[in-house]
Nucleic acid binder design. Structure first.
Length: 596
DNA sequence: GCCGTTTTCGGCCCGACTGTTTTCAGTCG
């Protein structure tokens, strides 16, 4: 979709323009390295920890300090931010049919073939491609045979199902199901090790496909088993060491089978990101080495050392490969391109799942949860938590059975009473209070002050413009009763974008007030998202990671929230849920009177 | 278009698989 007429104020919007520009360059036959540079800049913009639009206005020269953005692309960003369009993008868009870039998304079609379909068969968009496939035009072109035609028809039908990316939990579930199937619940002696890689392992907020690795010396039976797995809709590719299937859900799953001795190299390679791999290969080259999916080898100038009996310097584990490259080990979540050094060491004390010792956002049967106060407390205690905050919905969330002021007063008493029945865990009486459209809260100050903890969240009016949303959330942050801003943007992954507030401004105010900004761990939210976490940390804000528990299983979503935090560089000391009981109480007792 | 103790030009990761091909181009990750 051409975006060049929309105002450009967010990093995501800038990234979308650069990506679109990359498509257009590719379709007009530009140098492949220019195209790649544009793609790389787009990804860099998307993950940048600074607000590029603000930088473009205040200090445009600093744009070039972002990895992958040089003078040329910096100038385009300045143009986008100041005029709302990019003249090069507009010029190229005028040369290319508007529906053509969409063809690049069809599996099996790359820039070369799309260009030929456009120039030799007059294909303008997916509809005209379908026509040319049906009337035999495409089958008559050199390089396109009957199989290509059939595959393209399948690709179009698949795309028409509207299946794009998938939520992280879907990938997690399928990855574990298929790996269990392949190793026969751990009983298959030929399976020496299994892992999932790709964006699932990097804990991106959505995934395009699932990558599975199996260490085994007997690949073919595993390929058979994989391709015959329940729920396989179509086998997309199948070789001796690699196969791809599509499930009925539309999710594509790739399997690689390899010797155990090369597992680390393959895991590294297939975990990516692509940019991280490129950076590591560059590091290898600097040291006279060459890195591929089979290992790290001395570079003798010849290709494919693994096929020529060259002994690998490192291959069995990721750790030994990083060590041999004299590069600090990077956990998968940080293998993206951020800032000016993509191979910079991870922050000391990077948050881990085991650091989380309390849950501060949960619901009971009083509003829309499935557990009673006691059941919730027992479930939290069973997870080893020292504190659970009961934060049912406030009165405006009528659809979630939000509590009236009167019901909340009785609920507070019920929570206090439950403390005696569930010893060994602190049960906080709280509320998830709606932040109304104007930034006011859904309960009186008097009632809010009677609570141990207040999570304030936006639930409605999620299409406000950025300025209004920023003012709305700032007002909530500045309310002295508020402790946490819950799912600050209200986005739902793959469904709605949510608010686009000025995260840096919110984080600055939150830092001044001691308010934490939440990473809601539910896989449909992951809100704040990774790039927002980076921005918030840079401004000094504290972060909360909460499961927004409605059902007992929701505690398991913590891994996704922690993954998002780690992607944002979150350390243990900046996460309120990693505080011990005393420190947490100290935070809740902080001075709320000082002005920001 | 970006990048640089091989730095202002000349590189830019590389191997598996597919389909259409008789030796390889294109796509994908």
């Amino acid at each position: 979709m051409p975006l060049y007429i929309l105002p450009v104020s967010s990093n995501e919007a800038i990234a979308a323009h650069l990506s679109h520009l990359g498509d257009l360059l590719e379709l007009t036959g530009a140098n492949v390295f220019r195209v790649n540079a544009m793609r790389r800049a787009s990804r860099s913009a998307e993950g940048a920890s600074v607000d590029l639009a603000r930088l473009a206005e205040s200090e445009p020269k600093a744009l070039s300090s972002v990895d992958g953005i040089g003078e040329g692309i910096a100038a385009r960003i300045v143009e986008l931010v100041t005029t709302g369009k990019c003249s090069e993008e507009a010029k190229l868009a005028a040369q290319v049919p508007a529906g053509l870039p969409a063809l690049l998304q069809l599996p099996g079609l790359g820039p070369k073939k799309v260009r030929r379909l456009w120039q030799e068969a007059g294909v303008q968009d997916i509809a005209s491609l379908a026509t040319r496939l049906d009337d035999g035009t495409v089958a008559g072109m050199t390089g396109f045979g009957a199989k290509s035609v059939a595959n393209l028809k399948d690709s179009i039908a698949f795309q028409a199902r509207g299946i794009g990316r998938f939520r992280l939990d879907v990938g997690w579930r399928e990855a574990h199901r298929l790996l269990r199937l392949l190793d026969d619940q751990g009983e298959n002696p030929s399976v020496l090790r299994t892992a999932f890689a790709g964006s699932l392992r990097r804990s991106r907020d959505s995934i395009g496909d699932v990558d599975l690795l199996v260490a085994s010396d007997e690949g073919l039976p595993l390929m058979d088993r994989f391709c015959a797995a329940p729920d396989v809709e179509r086998i997309l590719a199948r070789g001796d060491t690699k196969a791809s299937i599509r499930l009925h859900s539309g999710l594509q799953v790739d399997l690689r089978v390899l010797p155990l001795a090369q597992f680390g190299a393959a895991l590294l390679y297939f975990t990516g990101s692509k940019e991280h791999n490129v950076a590591l290969r560059g590091r290898a080259q600097d040291r006279g080495l060459t890195l591929n999916e089979y290992g790290l080898f001395p570079d003798d100038g010849e290709a494919a050392p693994h096929t020529r009996g060259v002994k690998a310097i490192a291959a069995a584990t990721e750790e030994e490969i990083y060590a041999a490259l004299e590069t600090p080990f990077l956990p998968p979540e940080l293998r993206e391109v951020y800032g000016d050094d993509p191979l910079a060491a991870p922050p000391a004390g990077l948050l881990e799942l085991s650091h989380i010792v309390c849950e501060l956002h949960s619901h009971t049967t009083a509003s829309d949860g499935a557990m009673s106060i006691e059941e919730l407390a027992h479930a939290a205690k069973a997870r080893g938590f020292h504190t659970i905050a009961v934060t049912d919905h406030s009165k405006s969330s009528a659809i979630a059975n939000g509590l009236s002021e009167e019901r909340l007063r009785a609920h507070i008493d019920a929570i206090h009473a439950a403390r005696a029945r569930v010893p060994g865990i602190q049960i906080l009486a709280g509320s998830e209070v709606d932040i109304l459209a104007d930034g006011s809260l859904d309960y009186s100050d008097d009632l809010l002050n009677a609570l141990d903890i207040v999570v304030a969240s936006p639930h409605t009016s999620l299409k406000q413009d950025a300025g209004t949303a920023t003012r709305r959330l700032l007002r909530a942050i500045e309310h002295p009763a508020v402790d946490i801003i819950g799912h600050p943007t209200g986005r739902v992954i793959l469904e709605r974008p949510g608010l686009e507030p000025d995260i840096e401004a919110l984080a600055k105010a939150a830092a001044a007030r001691g308010v934490a900004l939440e990473i809601n761990a539910h896989p449909s939210r992951l809100d704040l998202r990774d790039a927002h976490v980076r921005m918030a940390l840079a401004q000094g804000a504290m972060i909360a990671i909460d499961c927004d528990v409605h059902h007992e299983d929701d505690f398991d979503n913590l891994r996704f929230g922690v993954g998002t935090g780690r992607r944002g560089g979150l350390t243990k000391d900046r996460c309120v849920n990693a505080m011990g009981a005393d420190a947490l109480q100290g935070w809740l007792d902080r001075d709320r009177t000082h002005a920001s």
